[in-house]
């Protein structure tokens, strides 16, 4: 029983290795790219389109709508990042129904990598939107005294992102494994369904939180004064999930 697919080492040469996390990630990447190519091979601009194309369009326009809902003015700028986050986590969770599969998101390394990506993306988009000076100045608001707390908040929320997803995904696998040993019939099926649900919820939460952070970082540049409304800043870790 592996707690994390990291422990499944397929190949190693010094510090370089290919473990289960990387291998499953590559498999997911391949699946997503091939699926994209298959779905978009003959895109029609007319009223008629296939079910799969409609599904993909619904997913993408849904992500677009959600991003707009959390306050991003131009969601398409952030669709690459946020959409990929959602699709990767969601597909990684959906694939748990495949026997022998271990979700890469069950690895703290993966969730940490995704959290670090968010951690980098937030200032990246913030600086691109409002400039370096204006972005850095936002850490000293409402008062310079808040600077350490703001920096601490940035780090802690990144850590929270990583831990939250890892905990949820790993625990789901753990619970399923434990219950499988206790009640091998029927109950694990229910747990698998529940796992699919929590996986989708995690994908949604992770993407939405990333969107909210980016929205908070870019909103100052939009002239809405997000920092003037402390209650609207989603710095506080959302421990609910």
């Amino acid at each position: 029983m592996h707690l994390s697919p990291d422990a499944i080492v397929l190949w190693q040469y010094g510090p370089f290795k290919i473990n289960g996390t990387i291998a499953y990630t590559w498999a997911l990447m391949l699946l997503l790219v091939v699926g994209s190519l298959w779905v978009t091979r003959r895109l029609s601009t007319g009223a008629k389109r296939s079910r799969w194309k409609s599904l993909v369009e619904i997913v993408i326009t849904g992500i677009d709508g959600q991003m707009r809902g959390v306050g991003l003015r131009e969601p398409r700028k952030y669709l690459d990042f946020l959409g990929t986050l959602f699709l990767f986590v969601a597909v990684a969770s959906l694939c748990t129904v495949i026997p022998g599969y271990h979700s890469p998101t069950g690895s703290l390394s993966t969730t940490a990598a995704l959290a670090i990506s968010v951690f980098v993306a937030v200032p990246f988009y913030g600086i691109r939107q409002q400039g370096l000076g204006s972005y850095l100045k936002s850490y000293t608001e409402p008062t310079p005294l808040m600077l350490p707390f703001n920096i601490l908040g940035e780090i802690s929320r990144t850590l929270a992102l990583a831990i939250r997803m890892f905990g949820n995904m790993m625990s789901e696998g753990m619970i399923a494994a434990i219950l499988l040993t206790l009640t091998p019939l029927l109950f694990p099926v229910v747990m698998t369904v529940l796992g699919l649900f929590t996986g989708m919820v995690q994908a949604y939460i992770f993407s939405i939180l990333a969107a909210v952070y980016i929205a908070a970082a870019t909103r100052v540049g939009d002239g809405e004064g997000a920092r003037e409304k402390p209650e609207s800043r989603p710095d506080a870790p959302t421990g609910a999930a």
């Binding site: 990291d6 473990n19 996390t21 990387i22 990630t25 590559w26 990447m29 997503l32 790219v33 994209s36 190519l37 779905v39 978009t40 993909v56 993408i60 690459d80 990042f81 959409g83 990929t84 699709l87 990767f88 890469p104 690895s107 390394s109 993966t110 940490a112 990598a113 995704l114 670090i116 990506s117």
Partner: peptide
């Protein structure tokens, strides 16, 4: 693995942007 996954994520982001 963290670094590899981050790189994987960036590559996936580019691929999906290009193909999806």
């Amino acid at each position: 693995t963290v670094i590899a996954q981050a790189i994987n994520f960036l590559v996936l982001m580019w691929l999906l942007k290009r193909f999806l």
